[in-house]
């Protein structure tokens, strides 16, 4: 056996390597460099790990991280079962399929800042249909002054915006199940629950894993929609990690702490990326 295969093909990867270097590696190196420096009057001081130590003991960061996890797990807990339920309810054959899929997918086509604007207006108690109706029904609702209302608005908006993705993936998984499974279940007299539990759910496992991980990553990095709707308020009640980072970097121009925070954020995302990668690899290899 030839132990020295021809590696000349690796040179073809060079353009991509150069591109990645300029788009990702060099900016990352810059961020690392910023995270270890302080700027005072145009002079740069090496401060070591000071910004990291400061941030790791910062209540603002702990609060933003805590809110971020609560938000991500809340929307996942709603979107996943709701997405599967809607996918199960969709028609399987006929002209209705295309119509339903287009209607379901509509929120996905709307730009994120527009989604934020829609819900910002919709939730207003003076001119917004949603906010006005709730107040007319006797429910005191005001997302600009009440933290619970602000959270409710953002969670509902996120569910409205992204559940269609789960629906489409789950529906694709359902459509891929051969009819023979359903015929066998019918012969055995299986109930609808048994069909779901022992045929549909196991067969959707791959796509649901992808949906779960995609949605988690996406919700974990959410920025635009809550920024447009609540601006992180009232107080800091809807300030998530991205908003906190932007406030540090662009609002206060604290480049050192912002860079250190970016690295911590990056490390969190990297852990989830690796889990994502391993899960997808497992699905690709046909792992149960």
């Amino acid at each position: 056996m030839d132990r020295w295969p021809d590696h000349k093909a690796w040179f073809l990867v060079l353009p991509v390597a150069v591109l990645v270097a300029f788009s990702a590696i060099i900016p990352l190196m810059t961020v690392v460099n910023y995270s270890l420096q302080d700027v005072l009057g145009g002079t740069y001081f090496f401060v070591g790990a000071e910004w990291f130590e400061q941030l790791l003991h910062s209540d603002a960061l702990h609060g933003a991280l805590q809110r971020q996890f609560i938000f991500s797990f809340t929307v996942l807990a709603i979107e996943m079962p709701l997405g599967v339920a809607i996918a199960l309810a969709l028609p399987r054959r006929g002209w209705q399929v295309s119509l339903c899929l287009v209607l379901v997918a509509l929120p996905l086509l709307i730009p994120w800042n527009v989604v934020g604007t829609i819900w910002q207006i919709f939730g207003r108690s003076d001119i917004g249909l949603g906010g006005w109706t709730l107040n007319e029904l006797g429910i005191a609702y005001n997302y600009t002054s009440n933290s619970v209302d602000a959270w409710l608005t953002i969670v509902v908006m996120e569910v409205w915006h992204w559940t269609p993705l789960v629906v489409l993936l789950a529906y694709a998984g359902l459509q891929a199940i051969p009819d023979a499974y359903y015929q066998a279940a019918k012969i055995d007299g299986a109930s609808a629950w048994a069909v779901f539990r022992y045929i549909q759910l196991p067969k959707m496992r791959g796509v649901l894993t992808i949906a779960l991980l995609l949605r988690f990553m996406d919700s974990f990095m959410i920025y635009t929609e809550p920024f447009v709707v609540t601006g992180g308020g009232p107080g800091n009640s809807t300030t998530f990690l991205s908003q906190y980072l932007t406030r540090l970097a662009v609002g206060q121009f604290d480049l050192g702490p912002a860079a250190a925070f970016s690295i911590i954020y990056f490390l969190i995302i990297l852990v989830f990326c690796y889990v994502f990668y391993r899960a997808l690899e497992g699905i690709g290899k046909g792992a149960p």
Partner: peptide, 12 residues
Amino acid sequence: MAWTTPTAIFFV
């Protein structure tokens, strides 16, 4: 921004 020796050592 000035590049420092510690960051250079880290990346190298």
